[in-house]
Design a binder for these strands. Structure first.
Lengths: 169, 169
DNA sequence: GCCGAATTGTTTGATAGTCAAACAGTTTGA
DNA sequence: TCAAACTGTTTGACTATCAAACAATTCGGC
């Protein structure tokens, strides 16, 4: 799958299926929720990543921009927690966005340890450019779902994502 | 989230919420299917990875073992395609499993280019050890779902994972 | 049969993403 | 006042991944 785009097969019939290519047997994995989850997530992420790459952004950068837009003055640690990455990983991420003139690090007088993150004018413009691309992405991946099914899916996923309440047994 | 386990906050009230810590605002992301998907997948994968680590395996190794078990004589390229990784990445994966004496590379007379992958006795024993752990993992992540809901979730996910039929517009 | 094209496994970089640990500056609470 | 905690940062290591090139082997059209 990942290589199919990289390798341009020239032979007419060898591209996908040799006369009778037996598909790989999944039976041990196919019963697992995590298996379906992984495949769906892979496809969605792929679509998301290429859609954002067209705009010149990585998925992480888009997440950061959208979170800063909705949380002006967010600190780098808070951003990292929200993105699920270490705060030391936030540094180069913001470095890059700052070099692109999309994000500012503002020193706040009330607490000189933290950097309050803000979007610049160009950053807000970038978000406005991102939103419609995001909507098209969403329509694309939910193309085979009715609105009700889409809502059901999100509800069930959120239920799965809930942390187990410290019952580790 | 990832850091919450690494950092042991000792201060009683600073652990989760300073008196009124405003939770990070998600509004732009929370409407996206991919967002729910990512969080659920992260939690499931975490559970899976730690469960398998207890057995001494990485997720990739478990996938390889289960696929070889269900497809005796699989080639490395086919395995890579099934796992969604490049065939060059399969090499060290199988190297490791072979060093553990769980997998054999068999040269087939019919095609001396390919390696037919097979489980050893120890490999089959490993699979037998893995299966119940897999079942417990599955029960854990589906704990908040009824059997019907679990089935619905898998069906919807499989529908999302379907490749878009070459309509790239 | 012959020979160019394709396939397979492999090696060798290169890249990206992540964390852990240590640090200095700053704030906080007893 | 001062030890403990928090913040951003740097550095180093590690993992996972791919791309490209290679030799050995097979295949298909002529």
């Amino acid at each position: 799958m990942a290589t199919s785009t990289a390798h341009a097969r020239t032979r007419p019939d060898a591209a996908g299926d040799r006369t009778t290519r037996p598909p790989v047997n999944d039976r041990r994995l196919a019963v697992l929720l995590g298996y379906s989850l992984r495949r769906a997530q892979l496809r969605v992420f792929q679509d998301f990543a290429t859609a954002m790459a067209d705009l010149g952004f990585t998925p992480g950068q888009v997440g950061a921009l959208l979170l800063i837009e909705s949380n002006r003055g967010l600190s780098q640690s808070e951003l990292g927690a929200a993105l699920g990455i270490d705060r030391s990983s936030v540094v180069p991420l913001i470095d890059r966005l700052q070099a692109m003139k999309l994000v500012r690090r503002v020193v706040r007088a009330s607490d000189r340890r933290t950097n309050a993150l803000e979007l610049t004018e160009a950053g807000e413009a970038a978000v406005r450019r991102i939103l419609p691309v995001l909507e098209r992405h969403e329509r694309r991946i939910a193309a085979r779902l009715s609105p009700a099914e889409r809502q059901t899916l999100m509800d069930l996923l959120d239920r799965v994502a809930v942390e187990q309440d410290a019952k580790e047994k």
